[in-house]
Amino acid sequence: RERELLKIRRDSDTKAAQLLKMEKLMQQTKDLMDKRVEDLEEKVRSSRRHRRNSLHQSQMLESQMKTVKGELEGTLDHLQELRNVLRRSQQKAEERKAAMEKLAAGLR
């Protein structure tokens, strides 16, 4: 009977030691999992911040692009007006030159 009691006590001590090891291992695993969850949550927050910043920057660039496009269209219109003025001036100059040559020929 005492042997059985001794054996039961030893088994009990062994089981208790194993249980402690398992609890320690489970705590380490839980701590590791908690750390991984925290890391993933931070990555998600960082990704969201980056996405918001990227969206804001994209919107700013689109606005700037629209402004520049409007300026370019205005500049193009102005250049076309200047081209038309230059053509009219050249045409008048050619007409005057022809008239001068005609007068010069008439004076000879």
Rank of each mutant, 00 (worst) to 15 (best):
D39C: 07
L40Q: 15
E41A: 13
E41H: 06
E42K: 13
K43E: 14
K43G: 08
K43T: 10
K43C: 09
V44W: 01
V44D: 07
R45E: 12
R45V: 08
S46E: 13
S47R: 10
S47C: 11
R48H: 12
R48M: 10
H50W: 11
H50A: 14
H50N: 15
R51H: 13
R51K: 15
R51M: 11
R51A: 13
N53R: 09
N53Q: 14
N53E: 15
S54D: 12
S54A: 13
L55P: 00
S58M: 08
S58G: 08
S58H: 09
S58D: 09
Q59V: 06
Q59A: 11
Q59R: 13
Q59W: 07
Q59F: 06
Q59K: 15
M60N: 11
L61V: 08
L61H: 11
E62H: 05
S63P: 02
Q64K: 11
M65E: 11
M65I: 09
K66M: 08
T67W: 02
T67A: 10
T67R: 09
V68L: 15
V68R: 06
K69Y: 05
G70K: 05
G70S: 10
E71A: 07
E71I: 07
E71D: 13
L72H: 03
L72P: 01
G74A: 06
G74T: 06
G74F: 03
T75C: 09
T75V: 09
T75G: 07
D77G: 05
D77W: 03
H78Q: 12
L79P: 00
L79Y: 02
L79R: 04
Q80S: 11
Q80D: 12
E81D: 14
E81L: 06
L82D: 07
R83V: 06
R83W: 05
R83A: 06
N84T: 08
N84R: 14
N84E: 12
V85K: 14
L86M: 10
R87W: 06
R87F: 09
R87L: 13
R88Y: 03
R88L: 08
R88W: 02
R88P: 05
S89C: 11
S89R: 09
S89D: 12
Q91P: 00
Q91D: 14
K92D: 11
K92M: 10
K92P: 00
K92N: 09
A93W: 00
A93S: 11
A93N: 07
E95D: 08
E95A: 09
R96D: 07
R96H: 08
K97D: 04
K97E: 03
K97M: 01
K97Q: 06
A98H: 05
A98G: 00
A98F: 00
A99T: 04
A99C: 04
M100R: 00
E101I: 01
E101C: 03
K102H: 08
L103T: 01
L103I: 00
A104S: 08
